[in-house]
Amino acid sequence: MHAEEVARLVDRFGPEIYRYCHRLTGRTQQAEDLYQQTFLKCLELTLTLDEQNNPRALLFSLAGGIFKNEQRKAGRRLAIARPIELDGDNAPEPPAPDDPAQTAQNRAQSAALLAAVDRLPPKLRIPITLAYGFDWNLEEIARMEKAPVGTIKSRLHKARQLLKKEMEAQGYGTL
């Protein structure tokens, strides 16, 4: 869409879409982010605005789809690494400085994982390093690798599978 068309949509449906975003997220900051992502997505679309095809429904659909995708991402992140509370009653105890066995085990596992990453073929090593070492998103990696986002997703999945298999073979259990 052209910027003028998106500006008209913001003027016409903006408050309603914002309320919908706030209803979905329940938080002001997340609602504002979702609202902005919805209209940014409109700018990325290559279609032209047709008033006969209910642009309001298109906006609601975009906002809902973006929200669902973000929820799925958050669910996957939680499945991989559970957040821990650093303050309060449930704060984890810091490792005892006199526990050299645990420190040595953690260092050995980290070294084994880094060595396993180094053994990956470059087409798998680069995306996994950028994604987990530097927090790059899929689009940034795809742009840098000059590959479709789907290919990057596939490479990350394959790399994680290979790393998991190698770490389990070395006796480190599931990652």
Rank of each mutant, 00 (worst) to 15 (best):
T48K: 02
E51S: 11
L78G: 14
A91I: 05
Q36C: 05
R143W: 09
K158E: 10
Q170P: 01
S154M: 06
Q36L: 10
A108L: 06
A115G: 04
Q71L: 11
D87K: 06
G65K: 06
Q71T: 15
P148L: 13
A112N: 03
T151F: 12
R12L: 15
T174W: 09
Q170K: 07
K123T: 15
L156K: 07
L24E: 01
Q170T: 03
P94C: 06
R160E: 13
L113N: 00
G150P: 03
N53H: 09
R12F: 02
E145Q: 14
L9I: 03
Q71H: 12
E32P: 04
Q37A: 14
G171A: 07
R56N: 07
D87M: 13
Q30A: 06
L58S: 01
Q30N: 11
A7I: 02
L47W: 05
Q30H: 15
L114E: 14
A101S: 14
Q52N: 12
L62T: 02
A147Y: 08
M1Q: 00
K165E: 04
G173V: 04
R77K: 14
L24Q: 12
P15T: 05
I84S: 06
A108Y: 06
E166T: 06
E168H: 12
R76D: 09
M1C: 02
R155G: 00
A116I: 04
R155Q: 03
R76G: 11
R19E: 11
F67Y: 14
P122I: 13
Q71F: 12
A7F: 01
D11P: 01
A57C: 08
K146D: 13
